[in-house]
Design a binder for these strands. Structure first.
Lengths: 306, 306
DNA sequence: CCCGTACCCAAGGGTCCCTTATGCTCAAGG
DNA sequence: CCTTGAGCATAAGGGACCCTTGGGTACGGG
């Protein structure tokens, strides 16, 4: 088996015309070159070099090997170069999937920072619901999945709401803890109250968010002693706020979501008990060590700290 | 440093999708594959494989390496193939240089056998005088030099006749020992005598061959007590025979040379003392181990045995 | 529930390779 | 002619590397 290392030495010998000069060029000793060439000639099955008195010449087989060596070594260095570019963040692609309308500020900020710090990298964004996004992660369709969870929620509730299964085998990077706030129409009787118990909204019509948020809402309300009457459910936070602003009901939304929604005709309340949802970035253990993925996770974390 | 062996393993893993399957394909154990991949990831500085549950997927860097691996390994196998072709006598060039008009039967026979036995090889023939042919050998302009020598001749005579210097550092393959025979015109008084002492030709006009042959002739004659009167000197054996046939003098020629010359008007004699010239093939020690060169030497030797 | 597959890990042994040290040859220069 | 320097070959020693063996864990099928 001809090794690339042999070709490197052979090329140096052919270029310099001497074992000693090749050894100096390669940064090793002359016997090392001598042995490498002997090994290569053994592998080739025919002499490659002619030690004719003082000068060192190539046989036909030697010339053939040197002719091939250029392309082979060029291919190797090109491969190393490309890998080094990916490892050195001068290249690389990251596919990020996040839950719909869940990252209007976080993701753009992180992506902008990534582009500024590592212009060679490209981060693409796709939206998917948590059960599906984690599935995409596991099946190799993305490198990072943004998701959220309600720490207090029971495993059973997670299951029934399709919470996305177990994350034990994933790398979980906490990004931020998002407080849930109530949203009521401006003319509502509780508008202006600093904080309300959630049970005070028991009789109101509710507008729920995504399936998991809806499941969580029901669970919280039931622990407070009532079942909310949900009239509308939509993933889209501006729609939720619009519905509330139109006086069609009340809602509980993540504070982060309200940052990028104009609360026209609606006002916010603190709710009791305080409920938080935890936004996390998920990836696979191996992917967490890929430089571009790690860098993107860092930017997401930094963006979450504001 | 990425090694070709690593790429071979990586490609097998990428093709089979499993370490164990790759190990079976490569004929080694699974931990060997595992360690190779770990080493390659260490060299690359970034993960290359994603062990996601059951299936094995590639990272971007891994895909880049696999993409390069094809060309690199193809180049390596092409190089091995070409060298193996040379080593296996399916290819290869041999440049043979022989003394002028010294090998009219030997060389064609050997070359024909070479072509028949190893059609991929090509043996080229150039003519050059022994001092120059050995020089060509030493300077890499040919692989085999055919030469001859007179064993009895003194070193001093070799020197003055430009005999070609020392051959101690060369590989010398004796081919045949060629008896010298006298050539006289058919009407000559000695024609028909089975054998003559060379001194009996002392008074004749002589026709000499090449410079070295001429020097040798003079030396032999002087050891027999006379100095030949040389009227003509030419390298070309047919010319020598033609001159003798025309009655212009007598000559002493190698028996081998007469085989391919029509001795029109001339007749041959054994001469006393018996003189032989030794025809040898010379090459460099390293070249003697080159298969095509060794094979050509073998054919020359076989042709010399007739 | 057991079993087969697949991967990782740790330990052992063998091989390979590089370095150091030594000897030889050749060529140039005193 | 002898010396000196350069260059290559060889032998011995030590270290690194790699492969195998054996044991452990997780997952999926009978």
């Amino acid at each position: 088996m001809i090794e690339a290392r042999h070709l490197r030495v052979l090329r140096a010998v052919a270029a310099t015309g001497s074992f000693s000069a090749a050894a100096r060029e390669l940064g090793c000793t002359q016997p090392a070159v001598s042995q490498q060439m002997k090994a290569l000639e053994g592998a080739a099955g025919t002499p490659l070099l002619i030690r004719s008195g003082r000068e060192m010449r190539l046989t036909e087989a030697g010339r053939a090997l040197v002719r091939h060596a250029g392309g082979i070594l060029a291919g190797l260095t090109a491969a190393e170069e490309e890998v080094a570019a990916i490892a050195g963040l001068r290249s690389g692609r990251v596919r990020l999937v996040s839950f719909p309308s869940g990252s209007s500020t976080l993701v753009p900020m992180a992506l902008a920072e990534m582009r500024a710090a590592h212009p060679g990298t490209r981060v693409s964004l796709v939206e998917a619901e948590p059960p599906g996004s984690v599935e995409m992660l596991r099946s190799g369709d993305c490198e990072i999945a943004l998701a959220f969870r309600y720490p207090q929620v029971s495993a059973a509730a997670e299951a029934v709401s399709g919470g996305g299964g177990e994350w034990d085998d994933l790398v979980l990077r906490p990004l931020l803890s998002d407080r849930l706030v109530g949203v009521v129409p401006e003319g509502h009787k509780l508008a202006g109250a600093g904080a309300v118990g959630i049970a005070e909204l028991a009789g109101e019509p509710w507008i729920a968010g995504c399936p998991r948020c809806r499941g969580h809402l029901v669970e919280v309300c039931e622990s407070e002693g009532f079942t909310p009457r949900i009239d509308f459910a939509t993933d889209d936070y501006p729609t939720v706020v619009g519905l509330v602003g139109a006086g069609l009901g009340v809602a509980v939304l993540p504070e982060l979501a309200l940052e990028s929604v104009r609360t026209k005709g609606a006002t916010t309340l603190e709710v009791e008990p305080a409920v938080r949802r935890e936004v996390v970035a998920l990836t696979l253990p191996d992917l967490a060590r890929v430089p571009a993925v790690a860098a993107t996770l860092d930017r997401l974390e930094r963006a979450a700290r504001r």
